[in-house]
C-alpha cells in the first residue's frame, strides 16, 4: 500500500503530465482530421487521438471532474449528427448525377489546399467528428463503470 506522501507526489506528477499532454493530443488530432485529404491520417485516426484527451483528463483529475465537464447525452446526439452528415455527403453524389459516394464539387479550391478535393474533404471531416464523439462516449461509458458508486 502507498503512504500518504507518496500518493500526493504521484498525483502531482500525473496531473502535470495530463495538463501537458491534453493540448498536444487535441491539436494533433484536429490537425490530422482537417488535413486528412492532404497528409497521412484521416478521420478515424484523428478522432481517436482527440478522444484520448478524455482518458488524460480522467487520469489527472478523476471521475467527478470528468462527469462534471462532459455531458453524455449531448455527445451521443452529436455522434448521430456526424453519421447523418456523412450519409448526406454520400447521397450528394446521387443528387448531382453520379453514383453513391462519388466525388462531386471537385472544382472548389486548388489541388493541395486545405479546402479542396470536393466531398472527400467533407466526408473526412464528418467521419472525424463522428469518431471523436463516438470513441469519447465509449470511454466515458467505461469510466462510468470504474466510478465509485457513492452518489445514489
Amino acid at each position: 500500500m502507498m503512504k500518504g506522501k507518496n500518493r500526493q507526489v504521484k498525483d502531482v506528477i500525473v496531473k502535470t503530465a495530463a495538463d501537458f499532454f491534453t493540448p498536444i493530443a487535441l491539436v494533433l488530432g484536429f490537425y490530422i482530421i482537417l488535413h486528412g485529404h492532404l497528409s497521412p491520417g484521416g478521420g478515424f485516426q484523428g478522432g481517436v487521438l482527440v478522444a484520448s484527451a478524455v482518458v488524460l483528463i480522467y487520469l489527472g483529475y478523476g471521475y467527478n471532474e470528468v462527469s462534471k465537464k462532459f455531458n453524455m447525452e449531448i455527445i451521443k446526439k452529436n455522434e448521430a449528427l456526424g453519421a447523418i452528415l456523412f450519409t448526406v455527403f454520400g447521397l450528394a453524389g446521387i443528387i448531382y448525377g453520379s453514383v453513391f459516394f462519388a466525388n462531386v464539387f471537385t472544382n472548389i479550391g486548388d489541388v493541395g489546399d486545405l479546402i479542396s478535393a470536393g466531398t472527400i474533404m467533407f466526408m473526412n471531416n464528418s467521419v472525424g467528428y463522428k469518431v471523436l464523439t463516438g470513441v469519447g462516449f465509449l470511454i466515458l461509458l467505461m469510466i462510468g463503470l470504474l466510478a465509485p458508486d457513492n452518489d445514489n
Partner: peptide
Amino acid sequence: TKSVNAVTAVVFD
C-alpha cells in the same frame, strides 16, 4: 478526385 492523399481518396470515394 483531386485529393493529394490517395489513401483518403480510396477510403472515401
